[in-house]
Design a protein around this nucleic acid. Sequence first.
DNA 1: TTGTATCCCATAAATTCCCATGTTATCCCA
DNA 2: TGGGATAACATGGGAATTTATGGGATACAA
Lengths: 153, 153
Amino acid sequence: MFLSTTTNNLDAKGRISVPSDFRAVVGDGGFDGIVVWPSFDGDYLEGGGIALLENYMRSLETMDHYDEGRMALQRAIFAESRKLAFDGGGRVTLPRELADYAGLNGTATFVGLGPRFEIWNSKKYESHIGDVRRLARENRNRLVSLKRAGGQA
Amino acid sequence: MFLSTTTNNLDAKGRISVPSDFRAVVGDGGFDGIVVWPSFDGDYLEGGGIALLENYMRSLETMDHYDEGRMALQRAIFAESRKLAFDGGGRVTLPRELADYAGLNGTATFVGLGPRFEIWNSKKYESHIGDVRRLARENRNRLVSLKRAGGQA
DNA sequence: TTGTATCCCATAAATTCCCATGTTATCCCA
DNA sequence: TGGGATAACATGGGAATTTATGGGATACAA
């Protein structure tokens, strides 16, 4: 599970350290790295381990072959995804088109969201997170009912 | 279940002993430690075992993927949480931003609340607990009716 | 060649691990 | 039911390891 938020440097070669917590999560799937694609919800990147993409593939298989949504998801996620391997220091090299899409320069912010994570321009994320906190507070009552449904600690 | 209230020292390295009762509770989920995040409700921290976050994750997955509130909750909870592993002595290192958020220095107070717990600035908690007692007294009748409706105790 | 992608090495800072110690709680046995 | 032995806990300090990060050197391709 991807947790927490970390801001790391993006160097002149396009390299960035993946937070060590995140590296520990993606140790499965036989690929030592992460998978990243441009979000279709905004100008940031989404990513996860290879296992996440395999899950997506399995759920797509349950959808109708000519379902518009299915095809859109396939194109938006699979076609746009890049496999990024870790170097000896736990970094990946972010292809320029991905960095450009998310407006990344100097630093980038990894945001853990449970099963997947996002990579944001650090400044944009800071201005975005305020709204998120407000919305979360407004929706807190829905989480309380989840707590009741959800078992032990 | 997290019970009782304990005040422990927060040392210069940001380390603090997790009460041994609490450590016994979080032995599940394959992670030997706790998860802590800043409360939505005030300047203190909330925490629990990794299993609590996994429940949140499962429950959020049952909600509509494009629900604004769902996404806000996901961002606010997972992105703000930190996994804190126990050291050999049963302590965790509290990241500076969490300690700052809760105004912790010198000591901190762990408050067991059943499925989760809170971490407070000890002084603040002492002044807070007075209000809590008053509220509990005012709501005593509601607890009695619960007892009649429910099972034991 | 020129830009790009890999790989290797170096280093400062942060984090984790390990050991020591005083204190408190628990156990055991006469 | 007194202790006294034993174990568990909270806590401090230092050593060892891991991280994050920068800078070459090398190989490849446009």
